[in-house]
């Protein structure tokens, strides 16, 4: 049978590996033998001239790096106003480090009274208003001037507190074993329908870390906590809000929710130390913070940063740390704290 012109001669015309390679060798040999010897060796050397390294450390210059002021203040009605001022450093320049600044002019302004005052430096970058306790729902503004830096400003206020109206605990069995289930209700005291921002955690008050006076410290977390946190029995808190040490929640209040409404949360803590047989060594506390929106965003971004601290990734982008300080970095925001022992 033949198909068209197919016959043994045409097949013989089709490439065969042996013939092809013989031809290539012949062509290359002819080419090279006809070439000047010097050129021939040059070509051979070039063929092997791969460099010794294809990766290297490089210097990075921030040619337009400009150090910025950092203003940090997380204020609460229980403490006098304290503002910390420092400057940023350039990682690429060992001579340009972070430093506290004790010679700044720090001006604090209260929106309700119209009063402004210059704060006093007490060293290590701290400035205080010795008799001034911040009030709830009052908008405060700060302005910091330092020669050689852009003047920075920030605004913030302490939101209304919420009430933990009830707390129940029970031991349950999870797939991993025994767990402590905590049910608690939050009651808003805010008359308006503004969004409220909650940050809470559960810590062991019998530990050194648990007694850290800074409620935003992130080392008091309990291992393997935050399993299956639900809101109103049905909705799960998303992973992006259940971080390593705290849980973050925005109460949008749905428009119809008013003062006195209750939000119910259920949380399971899997912790061998929470075993019912070992309860005497543990003193669990539920800590609920109502925070300003700026402080909410800042705290969350800091915790994410610490979780994902870059230690060698080639897959990473630097995480953006939230700041409400104009022309600078840092956080100026207020909060209320509520504690309940479990």
């Amino acid at each position: 049978m033949s198909i068209g012109n197919l016959n043994h001669r045409n097949i013989g015309s089709i490439l065969t590996i042996n013939i092809f390679f013989k031809f290539c060798l012949h062509a290359v040999k002819t080419l090279f033998l006809n070439v000047n010897l010097h050129v021939k060796y040059t070509v051979v050397i070039l063929s092997l001239a791969l460099i010794s390294a294809c990766s290297k450390d490089i210097d990075v210059e921030l040619t337009d790096f400009e150090s910025r002021l950092v203003v940090n203040s997380m204020f609460t009605p229980d403490s006098i106003f304290t503002i910390n001022v420092s400057k940023t450093g350039n990682l690429a320049d060992p001579s340009d480090n972070v430093e506290f600044i004790d010679y700044a002019k720090v001006l604090l302004y209260s929106d309700s009274s119209g009063e402004s005052r210059i704060l006093t430096s007490i060293g290590d970058g701290n400035y205080i208003a010795s008799t001034l306790y911040p009030e709830v729902n009052v908008l405060y503004s700060v302005e910091v001037e330092v020669a050689g830096f852009k003047t920075v400003t920030a605004h913030g206020k302490i939101p209304n507190p919420v009430v933990i109206s009830s707390v129940d605990t029970a031991m349950i069995f999870e797939s991993r074993g025994e767990a402590l289930q905590v049910d608690f209700d939050i009651e808003s005291t805010n008359e308006s329908d503004d969004t409220e921002y909650y940050i809470w955690d559960i810590f062991d008050a019998n530990t050194v870390k648990g007694n850290n006076p800074n409620p935003f410290a992130q080392d008091a977390w309990i291992e393997n906590a935050w399993l299956n946190t639900t809101f109103s029995d049905t909705d799960f808190i998303s992973d992006s809000d259940q971080l390593q040490s705290k849980i973050y929640y925005q109460n949008d209040k749905g428009g119809d929710v008013i003062q006195g409404s209750v939000l119910s949360f259920e949380q399971d803590i899997f912790n061998s130390s929470a075993d019912s047989s070992d309860q005497d060594s543990v003193r669990l506390m539920l800590r609920l913070l109502t925070v300003s929106p700026e402080l909410y965003e800042y705290s969350k971004s800091i915790e994410l940063y610490n979780i994902n601290r870059n230690i060698g990734s080639n897959q990473s982008t630097p995480l953006e740390i939230y700041s409400n300080v104009e022309n600078g970095l840092g956080i100026f925001g207020g909060y209320n704290q509520t504690l309940k022992e479990l």
Binding site: V60, G89, F216
Partner: peptide, 17 residues
């Protein structure tokens, strides 16, 4: 993006941005 600017948090940690 490259994080080469460092600053101090209220907790005293150094953060790169």
């Amino acid at each position: 993006s490259l994080a080469l600017e460092q600053f101090l948090t209220p907790e005293g940690d150094t953060i790169l941005v």
